[in-house]
Design a protein around this nucleic acid. Sequence first.
DNA 1: TTGACAGATGCAAGTAATTCGCAATAGCAT
DNA 2: ATGCTATTGCGAATTACTTGCATCTGTCAA
Lengths: 141, 141
Amino acid sequence: MITPAQRYERFLTELKAAGVRLTEQRKVIVKVLAEARDHPNADELYHRAYVLDGSVSLSTVYRTLRLLEDHGAIQRHDFDAGRARFENADSDHHDHLIDIDTGQVIEFRSERIEKLQAEIAAELGFDIVRHKLELYGRRRG
Amino acid sequence: MITPAQRYERFLTELKAAGVRLTEQRKVIVKVLAEARDHPNADELYHRAYVLDGSVSLSTVYRTLRLLEDHGAIQRHDFDAGRARFENADSDHHDHLIDIDTGQVIEFRSERIEKLQAEIAAELGFDIVRHKLELYGRRRG
DNA sequence: TTGACAGATGCAAGTAATTCGCAATAGCAT
DNA sequence: ATGCTATTGCGAATTACTTGCATCTGTCAA
Ligand SMILES: [Mn+2]
Ligand SMILES: [Mn+2]
Ligand SMILES: [Zn+2]
Ligand SMILES: [Zn+2]
């Protein structure tokens, strides 16, 4: 199991290797992302980073998020329209189940569904580049 | 096969039954939606409606879209973040495959995937209320 | 170490999509 | 036909995000 600290170090190593300038702000934002266990939006990330380093601005959070996404380090989601949410991309691919009552996001992975999607696309003459599978549900009472 | 004209009449009947005031603008917007074979966004709908009746405004398009969505007459999609797209909801449920090169939206339905999703949710202790399945792919060369 | 300088930052202003306040208008029940 | 009230167009507001610009700071060569 990879720890947040290991993930943080790996992020920095990869960025440095890619020739990215490691500023104080970027390091703080990367740390917050490496430690996140949820799927925070830009504003939440900004607040978490600001606590660690008051020199972080929301602009830089947005710019860093785009940078990290371009480098494949994080993934962007649009669960609720209008507010992007992020998570680090080092874990294996998974899809999401969102509890419509609490907003809780549960991760899952189904080989069968992944395979089925590829088959459907193939039947239509396509290769899947990426996909979005979100289940919105309610806990069984 | 239901025709656009039939769909238009059905929409109007349902709205009237629901006590919704049938203004000129709403009728035009509903007609445009009934005739749409693609997944237009608010601005596209506005332009199509404006051609039929210059008294339609973008505000009213947005208000009418919300009205129709609340009445279950249309469905809202967020294929590309930042721009909602709409389609009438009278057809059976289906999912979408988006050609990332052309933007073309292809509809499909898979009983197996629908069933699998319900099973996965059940295993996690949930009942699915709605879901979003979008495949983004490239045509096989 | 120390510059030098390209690239990064904060701030404020700018966008793009959508919503809202308000005075004028128009459905529709009577 | 009349009156009440919902609906409209317009412009301003909101939200999430982006960008211009003057200033600052990593990084690297000397
Ligand atoms: Mn996740
Ligand atoms: Mn469709
Ligand atoms: Zn998946
Ligand atoms: Zn489906």
